[in-house]
Design a protein around this nucleic acid. Structure first.
Lengths: 169, 169
DNA sequence: ACCGTCATGTAATCGGTTACATGATTCT
DNA sequence: AGAATCATGTAACCGATTACATGACGGT
């Protein structure tokens, strides 16, 4: 059982497995797209590579179909579940960064008004999507995912406030 | 002159060189720490590797001291300046992601109130830093950097509003 | 039958992170 | 003189991105 480093990607996989039970990489891909993906996306190739890595470390177990597609089904081991709980139960060591491509361009000389109008449109569209998600599934969403979605909505409001001011100027 | 892919890291380097003129990797390291670093950090090793990469692509030129420390001084070439302008002048193709470690933990089961109190403290500290920066250098900051800083401040306010609500619950 | 999209992966490359290393200054 | 920090890099590993590839299935 090799030593594998647990990255945020690892916890996304562990977390989704804890919600979904047994899942294939393709299942994970769809789950990401429908849930965390809106604020923490992963390319599907990672969802093939990462469970394999986690299996090496003993955090997940693999069961493989013997016929047909021979799909690999992954599920949490005790070790995996406990790693996930430790992680979720501890305070983050550091804050995230804004890392917004639009703000980076602004920093290095983009024209504020032009940029702002473009960004505004994108953020308004995204806010609508988030609000549609909340309206449609909000009530039967677990607390964590719902609160995370509300965080996303809050930040979209802030982006819109910000770019609107610049779009005017 | 090899084909090198221009990443956000590349544009940070190009952008800083356009502001600073000639600079060494160490100069870039200090510049990042005092400017973009607060919303888009880079490890110092990247500030050694990336200018070398950019030189291969003809975006920057290198001049090396012949005595003493034999420092490498980099500066923009015409190609580099024009790549930077093209980039800054075009609209970002896609929006950034929130990618906040705290929100990720929240999504996967962290206790909201406990987490919120921790995050709140960190964000309040960070907000103070940003406001101190704005107060001290705000007036003689170029538009781009100042607007970027204001974006950071706006998002910190939003984080504080958000976590405060959860900290109470 | 055929075509498109779904489903399921693998391979290659490369940027990024982490760790290591060491000469020069500055402070005590 | 010694310690600590500044300054300046290099090396190794590895996670992430991009591209390639192909069998299954559902609809026309």
């Amino acid at each position: 059982m090799a030593e594998v480093q647990l990255t945020p990607t690892s916890y996304v996989v562990l977390g989704l497995l804890s919600l979904a039970g047994e899942a294939t990489s393709y299942d994970l891909k769809r789950l990401v797209a429908q849930s965390v993906g809106y604020f923490w996306a992963l390319p599907h190739s990672q969802l093939y590579a990462e469970p394999a890595r986690l299996a090496k470390g003993g955090y997940v177990s693999e069961r493989r179909e013997t016929s047909g597609r021979r799909r690999r089904y992954y599920s949490l081991t005790d070790r995996g579940r406990s790693a996930l709980e430790d992680w979720a139960g501890s305070l983050p060591d550091e804050l995230g960064e804004l890392r917004d491509p639009g703000i980076l361009k602004l920093f290095f000389g983009a024209d504020p008004a032009t940029l702002a109008r473009g960004q505004l449109e994108l953020h308004e569209r995204r806010l609508s999507e988030y609000e549609a998600m909340l309206a449609s599934m909000g009530s039967h969403l677990p607390d964590g995912p719902r609160l995370a979605l509300e965080a996303g909505i809050g930040h979209e409001h802030e982006y819109i406030r910000y770019w609107k001011e610049l779009a005017a100027g």
